[in-house]
Design a protein around this nucleic acid. Sequence first.
DNA 1: TCCGTCGGTGTAATCGATTCCACGAGCGCT
DNA 2: AGCGCTCGTGGAATCGATTACACCGACGGA
Lengths: 339, 339
Amino acid sequence: MASIKDVAAEAGVSVATVSRVLNDHPSVSAEARTRVLAAVEALGYRPNAVARSLRTDQTHTLGLVISDVMNPYFTELARSVEEEARALGYSVIIGNADERPDLQDHHVRNLLDRRIDGLLVSPTDGGSPLMLDAVRAGTPMVFVDRWIPGVDVPVVRADGRAAVRDLVAHLHGLGHRRLAIIAGPAATTTGRERVEVFREALGAYGLELPDAYIGQGDFQAESGRQVTEGFLDLAEPPEVVFAADNLMALGALDAVRARGLRVPDDLALAAFDDIPWFVHTDPPVTAIAQPTGELGRAAVRALVDRIEGRPGESVTLPARLVVRRSCGENPTPVQRSTT
Amino acid sequence: MASIKDVAAEAGVSVATVSRVLNDHPSVSAEARTRVLAAVEALGYRPNAVARSLRTDQTHTLGLVISDVMNPYFTELARSVEEEARALGYSVIIGNADERPDLQDHHVRNLLDRRIDGLLVSPTDGGSPLMLDAVRAGTPMVFVDRWIPGVDVPVVRADGRAAVRDLVAHLHGLGHRRLAIIAGPAATTTGRERVEVFREALGAYGLELPDAYIGQGDFQAESGRQVTEGFLDLAEPPEVVFAADNLMALGALDAVRARGLRVPDDLALAAFDDIPWFVHTDPPVTAIAQPTGELGRAAVRALVDRIEGRPGESVTLPARLVVRRSCGENPTPVQRSTT
DNA sequence: TCCGTCGGTGTAATCGATTCCACGAGCGCT
DNA sequence: AGCGCTCGTGGAATCGATTACACCGACGGA
């Protein structure tokens, strides 16, 4: 593959001049410029990004470590991250942690070794020493969706508080009183927070959230199934199950169907994270939709701001309730309580 | 960030010795080794992959350019590719082409500039000059799922011939005679091939595939919807629609539902590419399942073989029919015709 | 005793870019 | 005419690793 030296030789100039043309530095004559450009064309020359990175100490690459690529929510997040990054002149390397702290560490280490300019993370756990070290060492970082409390890193996320209140209002209006939740791992902020928000919203309607109605899931479909079976085995099963993510909702759907029961007649279902497929399930699933694309873009902007020396702020965007048929047939649309 | 020089200074040896320890080269004394290791530990040193790549001309990175990350089939492919690559000591950079040749070129160029060791592509079109140049220049490459005819590059893909025959047998057995297809873009091999295979299978049952029953889609949901509406507007609409990918099947489902019609009673539906969600749609969708994970792994193995100087063969794996309820209520399972 | 071999080590070249610095030519001003 | 600019250019250092080559001491065999 042709190097800058070959181009210089072909054009009859020094490598310095070639470099100047390539980075369109002002002080280079029109004459030299055309000669260099012609040589570049003739040789099909493309600058070696590796060498350039070594010299400039910039890779123009962002790392994105997410918990589960197969989850449509994260897929969409990844997509929007890549789009915004591309628009700003960066590439993205995605690491899939599969909800495993060891894999998460593997990817963080790998990305750091590759000297990425900044890191976007949706942490799987409470924070590995590795990640904390990276923050301390000054690696530009931004958390998306989930975060690690007490770490001084901007967080870009959705606030589901209002939407969950709307959901509970909807359920209450439908006559449901026994509401259960399939929680995410306690090690994640979203895992803990969604339970709290739900409990709070129930409280506003004078409803309790007994321990028996809190199932421990891990954001994967299988756990949703198991927890739901547990609920159905209770002496007094809940009337509604609220899954803290879309995959666990899928598992719940499975569990209900496997018993020959029906949603919403025998058990109503709602989920956090709306995805296109929820329109097509049987029945369509009522869900809390995050502005996923916006989150991804905002996260990239915050990170690039940090990288390029600007502040880089935390961002919180509101989620909203999307009512479908999985909680009961009351087609009156419920809107968000706040604008 | 600490460099190899700092480690050398700390350990009181030369950089050469440090490098030898790091790459566990045999000829280095136990004494020196422990001193270096201690220094590495003390400084939290991590070798700079950028510098290493420049020197060795290897990045231990694979590029993967796929047509649409949001399509669950490709998501799963990407996931298995990353897993196998990791097992073999490589990282993966994913480029999402979004079915756009210009974006595909952007990613290929970007990956080439970064000097990835090899490229895995599922081409969006008939082959950009850029990609052909890369092949000619000797870049290790492997096609997955789709390929470009006439280019000397190994192809890893699924053969749907037997499965489509099984599907037609199933449909014929259910009494369906007017079968239509939503095709993919003619620029892709899978777009063309699936129509041919379908026509062939119909022929075996004495059925025709009239032009009116071939709708032109682009592998996206919206096109599936539009084509299906066209079918429903025909004087003699088809009884079955076979979508050449899962997203177009989703669009078809939408179109049918939007008219207040029902699957399978008013129009039966089958799809190429099985995905977990098809179990949960209303009704569950009969589909042709590719061994996606196997494809991804085989593709990586073929590519790494090429990179490391071994042959690197094409692989074709059989797809299989998964019968659900979207073509009619005949619960007799149809199995693949060949083992 | 001497020589060859071998294990362990350091010096320096190298990969392909960017960029500081020096230098020469041309120009305008006094 | 001479001074000081600016402009265009090239030489060479540099980024952080790997590795060819040279060297030195110890050891074994003749």
